[in-house]
Simulated scan of single mutants.
Amino acid sequence: MRRLTTVLTATAVLVLAITLAPIGRPAFAGAWGSVDCRKTPSNPQCLVTVGTSGGPGSPGTTASSACHDPNGTVVPCSLPGVGWLADDGCYYQPATGDELAAAEAAGGILTPPAQWYVGQCGYPPVPGLTQFRVFGSAPGPQLLADMAVKALRLPAPVIRTNPSVAAQVLIRVPVWLWLDSWGDQTATASVPGMSVTATARPTRVVWSPGDGTSVACTGAGTPWSAGDDPASASPTCGHTYLSTSAGAPGNAFTLTAAVTWQVSWAGGGQTGTAPDMQTTAQVGVTVGTSQTVTIG
């Protein structure tokens, strides 16, 4: 599974491996050993279930992934009263009381949303090893968000034009450009008691007609219909070729559509964003000149 790698992006990375004097937390004793994921790997506490949305070119799917410690051993994703598994093999929950005071004494007082967390490390725990760490958002939702984002399946752009690129396009004749399959895609990662949904939203398409120019559009473009004037330009997204494709590879231009998707997530009382994604598609376009035939 994709481990917790982006939790600290909102804050400076600060990990203090501090062995504390035992701090009374009865929840530790009861939760450890309550489930052995190596013996019962299908236990819901050991799995994250991920489901993706369906749509044209992107059928919905459902699958489960196990949670692992840094050694690759399957371990619980979370432990009631103890915390959430992070990439270092520790189970974290917000530091409070004496733990928070100890963390602030060692590493300073933080500015929100940065927050001190205390982790009990290992499964079963390493005796006496308690570690402080700064997170910009709660480890549980972030872990599920990482998995949901990774599971997103974005359809490739489906390019449409008028005049159709299946025939020769003429210079100085406006070409309407638009895309099919334009809409949000989602994926949800869940464990018992919590789910996080990642959403990828198409926001922009950059067309590269192949003649050295580019056209940026904020939406899918306007589909041409039989009632539209074929000599008119698209009201939202189009291009007019001013040179033929003679001399280009295969005597055709390569028309490319590159779609930018903004990615966000929400769940577990948290929200966040992930890096933009991009999908592309290409078609060949033969561009020529109109021919006049003289009789007589």
Results as ranks from 00 to 15, higher is better:
182 W>L: 13
274 A>Q: 05
178 W>N: 01
184 D>Q: 15
263 V>D: 00
246 A>P: 03
258 A>M: 00
255 L>A: 12
183 G>F: 02
200 A>D: 01
181 S>M: 08
242 L>W: 04
204 R>L: 15
205 V>L: 09
264 S>E: 06
220 A>M: 13
261 W>N: 05
207 W>R: 11
267 G>K: 01
219 G>M: 08
197 T>F: 08
249 P>H: 01
269 G>V: 11
204 R>W: 06
225 S>P: 05
199 T>P: 01
232 S>C: 07
211 D>W: 07
195 S>E: 10
248 A>D: 04
217 C>W: 00
246 A>D: 12
276 D>W: 07
271 T>A: 07
204 R>A: 04
259 V>A: 07
280 T>M: 15
206 V>D: 10
215 V>L: 11
189 A>Q: 07
210 G>T: 11
237 C>N: 04
176 W>P: 06
203 T>K: 10
226 A>W: 12
237 C>W: 02
201 R>N: 15
251 N>T: 09
250 G>Q: 11
241 Y>P: 03
273 T>I: 08
246 A>Q: 12
184 D>L: 09
196 V>D: 01
210 G>C: 10
276 D>S: 15
262 Q>N: 09
264 S>Y: 02
257 A>N: 05
250 G>V: 10
247 G>R: 05
192 P>R: 14
220 A>D: 06
214 S>M: 14
194 M>G: 03
180 D>M: 00
190 S>D: 07
181 S>R: 15
218 T>D: 13
239 H>N: 06
218 T>N: 09
249 P>K: 02
252 A>W: 11
249 P>T: 09
258 A>Y: 00
244 T>V: 12
223 P>K: 06
283 V>S: 04
230 P>R: 00
280 T>A: 15
268 G>H: 01
279 T>V: 06
186 T>I: 00
187 A>M: 03
233 A>H: 01
278 Q>C: 07
231 A>Q: 09
175 V>H: 02
221 G>C: 14
279 T>W: 05
232 S>N: 15
281 A>G: 02
183 G>P: 12
202 P>H: 06
208 S>M: 06
219 G>V: 04
197 T>K: 10
196 V>N: 04
199 T>W: 03
